[in-house]
Each structure stands twice: as C-alpha cells, then as structure tokens.
Design a protein around this nucleic acid. Structure first.
Length: 581
RNA sequence: GCGCCCGUAGCUCAGCAGGAUAGAGCACCAGAUUCCUAAUCUGGGGGCCAUGGGUUCGAAUCCCGUCGGGCGCACCA
C-alpha cells in the first residue's frame, strides 16, 4: 500500500473533519450517524464538481433545518485547501468547486496506484464467505445456474477489492436422494457399457449422455462384478464415483466462465462428522426443535398424505408458515436439517456469510436464516448472514422458450452457451441488470446483437487506448506526467468520470451489487469515446499531436490511466480487457 | 389461498440505502470519416415512473391496498 490518497477518500475526510468542527462548536449534536452522508458529483455538472447531502441528511436528527446546517457546514468546507467555492443550493445541497489541479492529482493517483486504484479498505479485513453455484452434482452446469454463478463470482471479487477477506465456497449436495438416483442412472449405463441392451432410460433416472464416461470407466474397472449384484453392494461406490465425475465436469464448466471456488464442502462429510446431530441437540435444548406433526400441505393435494411425527424446527416463530422438519420419517436428514448445520459450521470461520440462491428457493430463506441466527447467537457469535436471491433466466431461442429440464436431458448447457456467445458476453450480460429482476436471454438476439453488446463498447474503449499507445510508441511518444497542466477542460471531464471509481466500488460492495460496476464502466467508456471523437473535428484534441511532444505525452498519460481504470473495473467483472478487437 | 421478487420511453434495462428539470442502449429521424480502429460520435422526437391512497419541506425510490407478470408453498433439493 502506498500513502497515495484518492480524491474520494480525501473529501470523505474533509467532510468528516468539517462535521467534527461543527460538533466541537456546538452547532451539531455529537454522535449522529454519518453513514448516509455522501460526496458525489452533482447530476448537473454546472452546479459544481462535487456535492454533499450532509446538511440534508443530518438536519432532521440534529433537530435543525437543512439550510441553517448547510450555512455552517459550507463555511467550514470553504476553508478546505483545494476548494475554490462552496455554495448552498436547492433544499440544502452544498456544491463544491474544486481547483482543477485536484483532477490532475487524481490522474497521478491512478498512475501511482495502478491495479490498486479503487481498492478500498472499508471491508476492514472482515472475512466474508460467499457461497454460490452449489448446483447438485448430478450433471453438467446448465444455463439456469449461470446467473447466480456470475453474480456470485463478481460479488466475491468486488468484496475482496473493497477490503474483505473472501472465501468462495461451493456446497456439494452429495447426500440426498438425487445422488442415489444418479448412482442408479450410472449403474444402468454401466450395464449398457458391458454390452447389455438396456433400452430407453426409464422415468426417474437421469437420461443424459454425460453419464456414459464414468459408467465406461466403472465397467472396465469392475467388469461384470456389479452387473447383477443387489443395489446395496454397489450404491455407495457408484455414487461416490459418479459425484466425483460430475464435479470434475462442473469445475470444467465453471472454468469456462473463469470461475474457481476456494472450497468445495461436502454435505455427506458434514453428516458423517455428526454436525447435524450437534445442531439438533442444541436446538432441542432451547425448545427450537420439538417432535410434532405437520399439517397437510396447502395449495396442493397429495394422495398418500399421512400425519407423521417428525422433529420440527419452530420456524413459525420467525414468520414462516409452518414448522419445518429437520429429519425425514426414515431418520435421515432433510436438506434443511443438514443445511442449518452447514451454515453454522461456515459461520465459525467467517465474520459474515453471503449466499447466492436461485429465486426458486426463496421460500426457504426465513427458516434457514432463523435457524442459523439462533445457532450462532447461541454460540455467542453475532454473524451477519445475507441471502441474495437471483431471479430466473428465461432462456429463449427466437422468442420461443427453451426447455431446461435436467430430467429430460434436454437442457441447454452452460458450455454450449459460452461456446456460442463467448464468456465475456455471458458475464457482462448477466451483470448488466440487477439480479432481483427476471431476465430473458434470447440466443438469437444475443448472438445477432453481439456487435451492439455493451461489453464490446467497453472493451473497444480499452482497445482504442491500447492502439493509441502503440501508435504513439511507434512515433516515439510515451506517456509522461511532465506536462499535465496542458490538459484542458475536455480532458478534465474524462478524469472526473474516472475519479468516481473509488466511491463506486465502496457503494457497490456495501450494497452487494456488482452490476453497478458494469454500468459505471459503460459510462466511462462513453466518456472516453466522446472525447475521442472530439479529435475528429478538432485535430488539436487528438491524443497524438505530432508537433507537440509534451502535450502528446500528457494525453497519452491520460489515455494510459483511463485504460488502467477500465482494466481494474473489468477485472472486477471477470471480463477480459482486450487490447485489440 | 399464503409468501417472496418484479412492473420506468415502442423494445431491453439503469436510476447509487428520498433530494435539485426522470436516464442509457436498441429502433426511428437528421448529421459527422482528407481521422490515432465509424465496433465511434453529435443532435432530435418519444415517459401521469402499472394504479389508488399514506408518510414529509420533497417520493420512481419508504408504507398500505388494487391490478398485471414470475417464482415458491412434500419428509424434494
């Protein structure tokens, strides 16, 4: 870390100091929360370079009116070095005009910090566990998993950049009924590999071809040993081998998107270690688990419904419709029963948990949060546990829905999509909308419109910069910070957009919203392209002005720093910063 | 029936934990290439922010109702 400070950090400090001064003078009551205070460029740039809402957000808790507080605060801010004017406007905004030299300083900060420009310490080294993907290990990744995978991955990177220690975790559901189905499906393919005519894959088994590989391996390894053997003889072996094979495939699929987890946690191992029993014991001792009967399900009729006594978690106390079983009638753990123990275990090695879930699991949020909160508090830990729901992606081809059913084997794999439209397009498309809104992903449109895809707009800006630097170098010009005072108003506008990056990173990380980074980069690219085109009409505004080496050096320096910014931003999204297109 | 999410321009979507005259892309119209990649840029038309109330100095943003769309509501995962 260097002691180079960004403009954003400096002004956050200035506002803080000014508020301290008001507190000392008795103008402002001490101890008010300043978390809502923001310094940002005003929407209308004619209002100034920076604006703060401090007077407005603090007026109410301070028991005064915004204008009066703004008067006092602007008097303080007027004294800050580098501020050339502080004006009160509208309902109580304070608009600051800044010495243009400050923008040049910011440009130098980008150069000094390089790939660390925008990196923040607001995370304070807090350890956050981000769990995402966690698809069942029963087949390859399909498009339904894609959005959560990309959002989770980008969020993890963003949190790291904002000063957190991050663990990227994948929870492997290798203990439920679906992996037994997987084992049986592989057994069928195993018999097939041994030459048996198995016919069509029966209903209830996974029909996909992707099981043939592992089945063939098992056939050559074990021969006919298990062909006629009772299930009990081979189930565990086949299940273990199949899950391992599926995970290899899943990891390869994720790698296509540039996604790599730090940790794969096994549900089966968790259960073998007795973690759910420990959790149950504690919950029973605190009257959060009891033996009881469930009501018949509502909204659905089930023919063979029978009331059974099960261990139930009192989730109705936490707003759930119904208490929820942690064990099945055969004594095995429900998904929920194992999951609460899993999250409790995760919480022991992290300060905060973030889960990325598909919206189809929304109904289980209340119970798991309640159970985990009870367990962690019981253990004397207050752990934040957030669940971010990612809405469904409706996959279309020419406006027609594409079926995504793992059962039928007729699903669109993630690998197919990445192959068809490219990793960067997939990632950027998934990240240019907020995750809680549903989205359509139409192949035809995405492929056809790929030339207009925003990702190329951003990448093109970076490629143009790279190209300019190359051309400059050919002509004997290199970026130089020597004559930056020659940069004019148009160049400063570009730097102002760039200077928002540190603030944006912090806001996006705090809100757990990586999509803001994508939209911001689009703005930066837009500002760059706009500036570039000024040079079309006015050759003296081009980056390379052959007869003026000093000016060219300064412009190339600017270009290089905008390029650095784009690289830093694209890295957060996991999108390549290509240098040539 | 109940719970969660969404409803902003013709289409696809932003709108940063209420704030200064609602934004962008696509599409449409009118322009800009003796130029460092036009995969770009400049300008224009187009919105009772689904709807009805409420909270307050101030609401697309917060709260409640209604309508519309999605997801979920088994000891599945």
């Amino acid at each position: 870390m260097t002691d180079t400070q960004t403009l954003h950090a400096a002004f956050a400090g200035h506002i803080d100091a000014a508020l301290d001064a008001l507190e000392a003078a008795g103008t402002l009551p001490a101890g008010l929360s300043r978390s809502a205070v923001a310094v940002e460029p005003p929407r209308d740039l004619s209002h100034g370079d920076l604006a703060t809402n401090a007077a407005m957000v603090l007026a109410k808790p301070a028991g005064t009116n915004p204008r009066a507080l703004a008067e006092a605060l602007s008097a303080q801010l007027d004294k800050v070095p580098g501020v050339t004017g502080a004006e009160i406007a509208g309902p109580g905004f304070i608009n600051l005009k800044i010495d243009p030299a400050a923008w040049i300083t910011e440009l130098r900060a980008i150069a000094a910090l390089g790939s660390d420009y925008g990196r923040s310490t607001i995370g304070g080294g807090k350890m956050i566990n981000v769990e995402y993907v966690s698809a069942n290990p029963t087949g390859p990744m399909h498009m339904g998993h894609c959005r959560g995978a990309v959002v989770g991955d980008a969020l993890a990177t963003l949190l790291e950049f904002a000063g957190h220690k991050v663990t990227r975790e994948y929870y492997v559901n290798d203990a439920g009924g679906q992996v037994d189905v997987l084992a049986r499906s592989v057994h069928l393919r195993y018999r097939e590999a041994l030459g048996e005519a198995v016919g069509e894959v029966p209903d209830g088994l996974y029909p996909g071809d992707y099981l043939i590989g592992v089945a063939t391996e098992l056939a050559s390894e074990f021969g006919h040993k298990y062909a006629k053997a009772p299930e009990a003889d081979w189930l565990v072996t086949f299940r273990t081998r199949a899950v391992t094979a599926m995970l290899v495939m899943i990891k390869a699929d994720l790698a296509l998107l540039g996604i790599h987890h730090d940790l794969f946690s096994s549900e089966a191992e968790l259960q073998a270690a007795g973690k759910p029993e420990e959790a149950e014991k504690w919950l029973r001792a605190h009257d959060l688990v009891y033996d009881g009967q469930l009501d018949a399900p509502k909204g659905k009729t089930i023919e063979d419904w029978e009331p059974v006594e099960l261990p139930l978690f009192r989730s109705t106390r936490f707003g759930d419709d119904q208490d929820r079983p942690i064990k099945k009638s055969d004594g095995s753990w429900t998904y929920f029963g194992a999951d609460l123990a899993y999250h409790f275990q995760k919480a022991a090695s992290a300060d905060a948990l973030v889960d990325i879930w598909g919206a189809d699991h929304a109904g289980t949020v209340k119970r798991i949060k309640a159970a985990v909160a009870a367990l962690t508090q019981g253990a004397g830990q207050e752990k934040s546990f957030e669940i971010k729901l990612v809405q469904m992606v409706q996959l279309l081809r020419n406006g027609e829905p594409v079926k995504m059913s793992k059962r039928s084997g007729n699903f669109v794999t993630l690998a197919d999509v990445v192959q068809e439209v490219g990793k960067d397009v997939v990632r950027f498309t998934m990240l240019t909308r907020k995750p809680e809104a549903q989205m359509d992903f139409d192949f035809a449109k995405v492929v056809e419109a790929s030339k207009d895809n925003p990702v190329f707009y951003v990448q093109y800006a970076n490629a143009r910069i790279a190209s300019t630097l190359r051309k400059g170098a050919e002509a004997g010009f290199v970026p130089s910070g020597e004559a930056l005072d020659q940069l004019g108003a148009e160049e400063l506008e570009l730097i102002k957009v760039a200077a928002q990056f540190p603030r944006l990173v912090e806001a996006a990380a705090a809100a757990r919203e990586p999509h803001r980074v994508a939209f911001y980069l689009y703005d930066v690219a837009g500002a760059f392209h706009a500036y570039w085109n000024v040079g079309n009409d006015r050759p003296e505004k081009r980056f390379i002005v052959a007869q003026d080496g000093k000016l060219t050096g300064a412009r190339l320096y600017l270009a290089a720093q905008i390029g650095q910014l784009l690289k830093n931003g694209l890295a957060l999204l996991g999108v390549e910063a290509v240098e040539e297109m």
